[in-house]
Design a protein around this nucleic acid. Structure first.
Length: 930
DNA sequence: TTTATTGCCTAA
DNA sequence: TAAGTTAGGCAATAAA
């Protein structure tokens, strides 16, 4: 039987031996639980003295220990000439590994042994240990042979005495006699269920599960459930409703129906919007309250019959549903898109172009009590929320990336959806370390992490070149493909190659930052090997993408290559991460120091070694190659105008106008020359051409870019770091600035830009709150609440709003929420005049027009226009609307330019759209774009 | 008034 | 059982 692994865990049978359970969905559509016996928990101990004696002592001392073997392993960090003898300790039960790991170290005193004993791989979850050792992983397809079994045999009866197998939800259970991984590019027919609960608020504030009942629960299904796309359960009997509304006698009956339908549908993916932090804990606590009042509810959600529940770790809530994957759309949308707000309403509008229906919290009780239209509205509102959550996941294909990451890294989907890059990297490292006979360290404790965190101040990052500020024409953009991973591969940089003890005979690799690494022929580093594997798989995947005509396959392959890229880029960060199992400042510093010297070298080569390029007969020649110059030759002077970490902007100066083709010749030539000087697989790539580039400051610039697209050129404006792409500025600022950039960069028309700004300013100054509600909308600022309100040292505008909100409704936004606000008219500090936009609208509070003009519109615009000699003396400028601008157009430096000939296909009209699109997507860590 | 610090968000 | 990294600009408040 073939199935895709969704989840894995283990169960202990007869208190004596663990059985692994793999949960999955078969290609036939059946949900499967596959039991795998005979996998044993173990860990490693590096001891000193007579190892046989230690082994016997351990076996005698600990009843938990099943056996102790002597093995030869490399230690985790540093180049070693030989392996070390260690003990591999096998226990009967998985939980016994952490139980005895500290005790076992105490035997060192009993043995009076020298040196320091260490334990390794003592904190690997048993299910992960299994997946790693058997070369399986999340969302991987397996083919299992074996007999159908009664799950009851493999399920421990719960403490209450009732057997969970009564509620065992899988269509098929098998006892595996053998299994193997199979290659399959399709996705099992997964079942998605999304749900959303409604409870009546307390005085318009947050409801509490101790007192506020759940009155409605909505489902959305994909595929349908018994012909229903959606279903709404009601906690009261109501007559005459549609068939997809299900009235219940009371809340208890509704909750029971909820769990019954849930298990009957048997979803693989359980979706919601913020359900991880709200709906699931709420239902859990509400059920507890009702049961304590004597109601009978059986809240089963797990495939093994386990009940709904949640755990809090600090600020983070985690829920688990055995055999399924809980996917909260909110954090996924947050990670995938850079938006000003992440309320379901804002997100649906922005990303799905769908409106959320709304019921005002204060009137919910009234809507619920109503029997007519209002009640229907309430039902539809609830239903819509469940629909939207599911649509976000499905329409935006938010899970594709995570599924691919699970397959490529080997971690379970739930871990990847919940967590960061750590679990994926560690899974990859554990597997490869195992294959290379090397043990891995446990996670550091808080003390060690804190120490490391202090040390991390010695980690230097990338080099940012001082930009040649102002407007430049004809700028080539080159960048290093996947800079950091290629540096690690090129120089064999790894935890396992750094010289810490043993010295090789051979010459070592010495990074600019110090330290020494052995060359690959002495010992090929494990991380470079992993990176090479990921890189070659990525190349393969891209090749297959070009071949396939199957749309689904293409989609899977694309997600796979993106996942591979993302993993490639994660290793450097991990090496400097204080809580990593492997932490090496020497390694991390080696990587960045090679990067810095690299970009500085590149600048030197281009500025000095090359200096000038001669264009002759459609070729780009170096000065020596060109020999004697003829009048037809074009001399292009090169200078690096800017660069950040892995990119170089090269200004091409020439007496004549240069065509895009000519600039491309130069770009390709530069890329070839520099790449040839680099060790494999490092490569400097010719990325694009900026016809005009406006460099304002480090990490702040705008480019009018031309990129080759099916035999023509496509142009667009790319803005980095400026206020148009920053979410802590209002929309009016970004719209105005975008327009100014467009006029200046494309049209070369400074006058028009100035006029445009004047119009905007006058519009704001003469704002009529009654009429211009849309303008007020565009004055809303947002800022993230990044910590507990009491931890702030200074006043902050969004804090003011949070305080106000708390006073008015009692609702406190949680950490991570983006708080919208506007600045209202009045005296005193700006922070004190921040106010909730809704409140301002409802109460017709006047806006601080002056603030918006002087602090939001003018400064960013000024930074751009001053490049062209436009001065805006903001002091002169007041409501009289005179002398707004001290406008001295020094030089109409930018002449309205003929469009380059080959650029017929380009659509300047699309500029604004391009800008919007650019802004809509989250900045990916694209250091190393292949 | 000037300067230092805090906070946010972005580039890579 | 929380969390990949540093470099950098800019605005506001707080301190000098």
């Amino acid at each position: 039987m073939d199935f895709q692994i969704l989840d894995a865990d283990y169960e202990v049978i007869n208190d004596s031996s663990p059985v692994i359970r793999l949960f999955g969905r078969g290609e036939d559509g059946k949900s499967v639980c596959c039991f795998v016996p005979d996998f044993e928990p173990y860990f490693y101990l590096k001891a000193s003295g007579d190892l046989n004696a230690v082994a016997r002592l351990i076996e005698d001392t600990f009843t938990q220990v099943k056996k102790v073997d002597i093995v030869e392993k490399f230690e985790p960090i540093g180049y070693q000439k030989t392996k070390t003898k260690m003990l591999r300790v096998t226990t009967h039960l998985p939980r016994e590994v952490p139980e005895i790991r500290d005790e076992i170290l105490k035997l060192q005193e009993v043995m009076r042994a020298e040196g320091k004993w260490e334990v390794y791989e003592t904190d690997i979850l048993f299910r992960n240990r299994f997946l790693i050792d058997r070369d399986l992983g999340g969302m991987v397809w397996v083919s299992a042979e074996g007999e159908a079994v009664d799950p009851a045999k493999y399920i421990r009866t719960s403490s209450s005495g009732s057997s969970r197998c009564e509620k065992f939800a899988c269509d098929a259970s098998i006892l595996a006699s053998g299994f193997h991984k199979v290659e399959n590019l399709t996705l099992a027919p997964l079942k998605y269920l999304s749900f959303d609960i409604e409870c009546l608020p307390l005085d318009g504030g947050m409801p509490s599960p101790e007192v506020s009942p759940v009155v409605m629960i909505s489902f959305s299904f994909e595929p349908e459930y018994k012909g229903h796309k959606t279903l709404v359960l009601l906690a009261k009997p109501v007559e005459g409703l549609n068939s997809d509304v299900y009235p219940c006698k009371d809340e208890t009956e509704m909750l029971n129906r909820f769990f019954e339908i849930f298990c009957e549908y048997d979803p693989d993916i359980v979706v919601g919007y913020n359900h991880q932090d709200f709906d699931i804990p709420y239902i859990t606590d509400r059920v507890k309250t009702l049961v304590s009042e004597g109601k009978s509810i059986n809240p089963v959600v797990g495939r093994d019959g386990s009940k709904i529940g949640y755990r809090k770790f600090g600020l983070i809530t985690r829920t688990e549903m055995k055999g399924r994957v809980v996917v909260d759309a909110l954090p996924l949308v947050r990670r995938a898109f850079s938006l000003k707000q992440y309320t379901l309403r804002a997100v649906s509008k922005e990303l799905l172009n769908r409106e959320k229906l709304d019921v005002p919290p204060l009137e919910m009780e009234e809507y619920w009590a109503d029997t007519g239209e209002k009640f229907k509205k309430f039902v539809d509102y609830s239903r819509r929320d469940a629909e939207l959550a599911l649509e976000l996941i499905l329409h935006l294909k938010l899970l594709d990336k995570y599924i691919a990451l699970a397959q490529v890294s080997g971690s379970l989907l739930q871990e990847i959806v919940d967590g960061g890059q750590t679990s994926m990297i560690e899974t990859l490292l554990l597997r490869e370390f195992g294959l290379r006979d090397r043990v891995l360290l446990p996670k550091p404790d808080d003390g060690v992490s804190a120490e490391r965190y202090e040390m991390s101040s010695d980690l230097k990052g990338g080099e940012v070149l001082e930009p040649q500020k102002g407007l430049l024409e004809n700028v080539l953009i080159l960048d290093y493909k996947s800079l950091y991973p290629t540096i690690m591969m090129a120089h064999n940089l790894c935890y396992t190659t750094v010289v810490t003890g043993d010295r090789p005979e051979e010459v070592t690799i010495k990074p600019p930052s110090g330290g020494e690494f052995v060359p690959p022929d002495v010992y090929k580093g494990i991380v470079p090997s992993i990176l090479e594997d990921l890189l070659s798989r990525r190349t393969q995947t891209k090749k297959r993408m070009r071949k396939t005509s199957n749309e689904n396959e293409y989609r899977v392959l694309d997600a796979t290559q993106l996942a591979l890229k993302s993993l490639l880029n994660s290793f450097y960060g991990y090496s400097g991460y204080a809580r990593a199992r492997l932490y090496s400042l020497t390694l991390a510093n080696a990587v960045t120091s090679f990067g810095r010297s690299n970009i500085l070298n590149t600048r030197e080569i281009i500025n000095s070694t090359i200096g000038k390029i001669i264009l002759r007969n459609k070729t780009a020649l170096l000065l020596d190659e060109a020999g004697e110059l003829s009048p037809q030759d074009r001399v292009v002077e090169l200078s690096v105008a800017y660069g950040d970490t892995d990119s170089v902007f090269v200004h091409c100066k020439s007496r004549e106008d240069l065509s895009l083709e000519e600039i491309s010749l130069i770009g390709n030539r530069l890329s070839n020359i520099v790449s040839a000087s680099l060790p494999d697989p490092m490569e400097l790539e010719f990325e694009s051409i900026a016809k005009r580039a406006l460099l304002i400051a480090k990490k702040r610039y705008a480019l009018w870019l031309f990129e080759p697209r099916n035999s023509g050129w496509e142009d667009k404006i790319k803005v980095k770091g400026m206020e148009t792409v920053r979410r802590d500025w209002c929309e009016l600022t970004s719209v105005t600035l975008n327009k100014v950039l467009e006029l200046v960069l494309i049209e070369g028309n400074v006058d028009q830009a100035v006029n445009y700004v004047r119009e905007v300013v006058s519009k704001v100054r003469n704002l009529d709150p009654a009429k211009d509600s849309d303008i007020i909308e565009s004055l809303v600022l947002t800022r993230t609440l990044t910590k507990k309100t009491e931890s702030y040292k200074n006043k902050q505008p969004h804090l003011t709003v949070v305080e106000n909100l708390k006073k008015r409704t009692g609702v406190v936004p949680s950490i991570g929420t983006r708080i919208p606000f506007v600045i209202i008219a009045g005296k005193g500090l700006f922070v004190d005049r921040a106010e909730d936009p809704d409140y301002v609208r409802e109460n017709n509070i006047p806006i601080d027009v002056d603030y918006y003009i002087k602090k939001q519109i003018l400064p960013p615009v000024e930074r751009i226009l001053e490049v062209f000699g436009v001065k805006i003396s903001s002091l002169d400028f007041d409501s009289k609307q005179k002398g707004l601008f001290d406008f001295e157009a020094k030089k109409p430096e930018v002449k309205k330019q003929e469009k380059p000939s080959s650029e017929k296909e380009s659509k300047v009209k699309a500029q604004e759209q391009n800008l919007c699109k650019e802004n809509g997507h989250a900045a990916q860590s694209s250091l190393f774009d292949f």
